[in-house]
Computed example of a mutant assay.
Amino acid sequence: MEHGTIERQMHIEASPENVFEVLSNPAHLREWWPDEADFPGRPGGDGWISFGDPAAGGKRERFTVVDVVRPRTFSFRWNHADGVTAAPGNSYLVVFELEPVDGGTLLRMTESGFRERGWDAATVAAAHADHVRGWDLFLPRLPIAAAKLP
């Protein structure tokens, strides 16, 4: 099995502007993906997202915005070590591409960076499987969050 990327595509009954807002604004991102998020929504913006309470065993992950082309593309790197600049080889890259289609938005999501981390095959496969489960759980929540925006 190939563990290099995860790709998802879905149609969302909301404008590209609303979907982009839900992807790129920490307040709206929290509605469908992490429990908490704090980052500036501009290229190079560095911050974090968290799943659960980090003080109680939850995960807090670094998050760096890579590209912002409103309302077409939002990308970021995440899961890199504290004090390290996000780059290929030390983080995952997530790219969201938005296209207006049939009165809504076609969302394409790609996550890459699994094999580039220098891990052995078993670690790559486990990380890939974990992220597949995560995106399969969280992405269906995105249209619900986008529908809440006026």
Rank of each mutant, 00 (worst) to 15 (best):
T5P: 00
E7V: 14
H11R: 11
E13A: 14
N18D: 10
N18H: 13
F20L: 09
F20D: 01
L23C: 07
S24I: 01
N25V: 09
R30W: 00
W32M: 05
D38E: 11
D38G: 10
F39E: 10
F39I: 09
F39W: 11
F39H: 13
P40V: 11
R42K: 14
R42D: 09
G52A: 09
G52H: 09
A55N: 11
A55R: 11
A56P: 01
G57P: 05
G58Y: 03
K59N: 14
K59T: 13
R60L: 09
E61F: 11
F63E: 06
V68Q: 01
R70K: 13
R77H: 09
D82A: 15
V84L: 10
T85S: 15
A87F: 07
P88H: 05
Y92R: 04
V94T: 15
V95N: 03
P100L: 07
L107I: 04
F114M: 07
F114H: 07
R115T: 15
E116I: 05
D120E: 15
A121L: 13
A121F: 15
T123G: 02
V124Y: 02
A125S: 12
A126G: 04
A129T: 13
R133N: 07
W135V: 06
W135R: 07
P140S: 01
L142Y: 01
A146L: 02
A147W: 01
A147F: 03
A147G: 15
L149H: 04
P150L: 06
P150T: 03
